[in-house]
Amino acid sequence: MSNAVREGVLPIAEAHPWRFTTREPTPLARLFDNKTFLVVMCLTPAVGLLVVFLTYPLGLGLWLAFTDAKIGRSGVFVGLDNFDSLFHDRIFWLSVTNTLFYTAAATVGKFGLGLWLALLLNHNIPFKSLIRAIVLIPWIVPTVLSAIAFWWIYDPQFSIISYLLKAMGIIDYNIDFLGTPWHARLALVAANIWRGIPFVAISLLAGLQTISPSLYEAAMLDGASSWARFRYVTLPMLMPVLSVVLTFSVLFTFTDFQLVYAITRGGPANATHLMATLAFQRGIPGGQLGEGAAIAMAMIPFLVAATLFSYFGLARRRWQQGEADE
């Protein structure tokens, strides 16, 4: 190295004259400059995951629903045979009505109590964050654990509720929570509500906090009662969040499996079978993959209807802004 370089000055005579290099970019570099290629590259992992873990199983399920596949042998296409057979099966229809009742009752309960809880939590209360964290617990606990807890709570011999009521002298026998159809259904709905309240409450609380206090101030100046403030300010402002939360909640409840499977397995005499548990019972332990898939597929129209209802029924702009429907 010359002295000049060491001193940081490059003698002009020694420097290479600057030239615009017209060197061709490598094919790889060109490929990466191609926008289409980049789009495809970046989308592939996400699309791949969706295809492998969502589209493929869904498509396979759809295909199985039209075959007579059994565990242990792949089936042949049988058209609508599975659906025809289910159409004439009382137990399938019982599971459909059970599922509709379960979803409707649990959703009403969850939203009533969840909204109430959200309104309470929205006030300035001491230990607000702590209480909010506690409220989330039912939702955080793995479903199977809470299901087992409820299984004990509803146990015909060892129920804590029966025990307490007996200790207080209110009853002198054990309540048969799960032994008769309606007791069992309501018990499961109660367990589902308990599990679902936190999700609704915390989501709605987030929605409540986005409502500007000035709206309430304006309403109060106009002399609005607290009911009127709720009805004409809170509810319309909350409606977009409400409709999304409602959609999710309905989907989760409609497809519920774990609570019922852990507590009653669909008994007594199928009184609590949901479509999901019946699909599993017949598809996996029963080995009738085709029939199980058909039951699972039969859930889709209901789910689509519920989604469309929430989106188009509840998310209408005009309604949200307190105007009358067209």
Binding site: D155, P156, Q157, D176, L178, G179, A184, T264, P268
Partner: peptide, 16 residues
């Protein structure tokens, strides 16, 4: 029977 057997699962009779 003892009441409640309609909802018994496999562990229930053991517990009772």
């Amino acid at each position: 029977y003892i009441p409640g057997t309609q909802s018994w699962l496999d562990p229930s009779n053991n517990k009772a």
